[in-house]
Design a protein around this nucleic acid. Structure first.
Lengths: 233, 233
DNA sequence: ATTATATATATTTGATCATAAACCAAGGGG
DNA sequence: CCCCTTGGTTTATGATCAAATATATATAAT
């Protein structure tokens, strides 16, 4: 009975094609690479990625199950165009779920993780100053998930990732906008880390909710403008 | 431009085979029809259902994305065997998510829905008296989701369904157990409906959490016994 | 006897093909 | 003139097949 669990070794993962395709599409979705309302066609994606239709099909199915795209029966999938109500819905849910995650993370905070978080803030304020907006969104993502991972919850993490995927096409705008107005985007991040450092879970949750709330404010504004211009799709 | 959205009509769904297979497997999962640790083989299921492998494959992929089954790379899927930590994780998450759902539902409660809920409680106490345990679980499910639907959240509902799927193989035992001890399983249900009737969202949430917490207590007990008997898988 | 190697088997994963469902445009009847 | 129908086209969906990967079995060597 060879039990590897004592050796501290991780199973080497032989990356399957479906996994690869999924990761690529998911990444593009998350960073807003597809427009809301856009239809995604299997053959097209398969050709672009140089694979057969099958792995693309599986990946799209998976993304549909995670609500990153919506599946129209017999008519493929498209990235959802969210109404204002849906956005508020998403915001409230993110408050609850990510709020819980940060509270739980507060209990497991190590000094290394705190140092990492401060490093991430440094890096972000540096790139913010240089107005490199795409990587700003990526850094924001890294910051948040570094915290969420410390919640040690294999239940919460997939839910949060699904929520971020659903927000993806819209949050991109948010991170671009508060990049423009003199880099104040990381104020709440500092607040969060300070609260975590002194083990104040409740304060960390409130600061996080402010952070989420502010980015949604920007999205909602932009959304109202789109609507006035005659809809999205 | 024929816009059906004003007519209150729902699109008639031409049920695809994959959908059908998914519904069947999901249902069996939810009611604990597969044992924790059990491996699900595509060919086997396809033969049993009288279809080709393809729809089964798609359905299993979808269930894997919803965390109802775990997918081992190149080795198919199996229904997860949850540790005690995972169960606690699930409980805390259900507190947060379903708690939010019931609070939001409290704001949208109609008198018809309240009447429906009381009817469901009546029906459940009737079947509980007759010790028909399988349908008791089904009625419990109906009761909870009647409430959650009133939250009017297309974001929360899929998350809750995923959480119930993950609990499925374990919660079955719970509903069977508190069926045995003189039908006191619906006390909290009465409490929830009363709170909803007087619009007390916070009380409804607390009663719901008690309801969830109690069923998890039973599951945890049972889980400890299994562990002592030498593990599940 | 036990470990290592090789073979065989089982099962997923990826590709290709057939079918059928939904969209779009053009034409015929009211 | 408009609506309904009808064809063609596009696209997903379902079936089958081939390739790759993991597990189990058996055989041989130390």
């Amino acid at each position: 009975m060879t039990d590897d669990s004592q050796l501290g070794l991780r199973r080497i993962e032989r990356e399957t094609v479906q996994e690869r395709v999924y990761a690529i599409l998911r990444d593009k979705l998350m960073r807003g690479g597809f427009a809301p309302g856009q239809k995604l066609k299997i053959a097209e994606l398969a050709a672009a990625l140089g694979t057969s239709a099958m792995p693309v099909r599986d990946a799209l199915n998976r993304l549909a199950a995670e609500r990153a795209v919506e599946s129209l029966p017999n008519r493929g999938v498209r990235v959802p165009a969210l109404s204002k109500d849906s956005l508020q819905d998403l915001r409230e849910t993110r408050f609850a779920v990510e709020g819980l995650a940060v509270e739980r993370a507060a209990a497991n905070m190590s000094s290394e993780t705190l140092a990492n978080l401060r490093r991430l803030i440094e890096a972000q304020s540096a790139t913010d100053a240089k107005h490199v907006s795409e990587s700003s969104a990526e850094q924001n993502r890294a910051f948040h998930f570094t915290i969420y991972r410390q919640s040690n919850s294999s239940v919460l993490l997939p839910i949060i990732e699904s929520l971020w995927l659903q927000c993806g096409p819209y949050l991109r705008i948010a991170s671009e906008m508060f990049d423009g107005r003199d880099g104040r985007g990381i104020d709440f991040h500092v607040e969060i880390v300070d609260a975590l450092a002194r083990g104040d879970a409740k304060a960390a949750r409130l600061a996080l909710q402010s952070d989420i709330g502010r980015s949604f404010e920007l999205v909602m504004n932009e959304h109202a403008i789109w609507q006035r211009r005659g809809g999205i799709a």
